[in-house]
């Protein structure tokens, strides 16, 4: 058993771990009751699952240029996934598509009336 064999087996284990995460996330996506809880499960394959798969592929290819591109993929995904989730959650809250009875704490619910009030004060009477 040489070093490349070991690297191949580790790569296979990493890839299978990433695939398992995507299956778990898909089950969560199907069974959770509202958008915020679905977003909670959706982030698993987007960050950790993808990182595992990319690490596994880099171990399997063992090619510097491919590793560089894979690193770029991982960095891009880690930068863009929170932004996209934030936009989706914000739009859902503003559209009233969040189930308030499932929330433990609702800080935005207190903040939005206060924000509207301060805007009205700064602009004068509407």
């Amino acid at each position: 058993m040489t070093l490349t064999d070991v690297a191949d087996i580790v790569a296979g284990i990493l890839l299978i771990a990433g695939a398992l995460l995507t299956v778990i996330a898909a089950i969560g996506l199907l069974r959770f009751p509202d958008l915020l809880t679905r977003m909670h499960s959706a982030t698993k394959p987007q960050v950790l699952g993808l990182l595992l798969v990319v690490a596994g592929l880099a171990l399997r290819l063992r090619d510097p240029s491919a590793t560089a591109i894979l690193l770029l993929v991982a960095v891009f995904q880690m930068v863009t996934a929170p932004v996209a989730s934030h936009m989706a959650g914000r739009a859902a809250y503003r559209a009233g598509q969040v189930r308030k009875d499932l929330l433990v704490a609702d800080e935005l619910g207190d903040a939005i009336p206060r924000l509207k009030e301060s805007l009205r004060d700064s602009r004068g009477a509407p």
């Binding site: 995507t22 679905r38 959706a42 996209a84 989706a88 559209a95």
Partner: peptide, 14 residues
Amino acid sequence: TMLDRAIAFDVLIA
């Protein structure tokens, strides 16, 4: 909702 589909689309891309 449309946003559920957006989230599902994100996961499908991943």
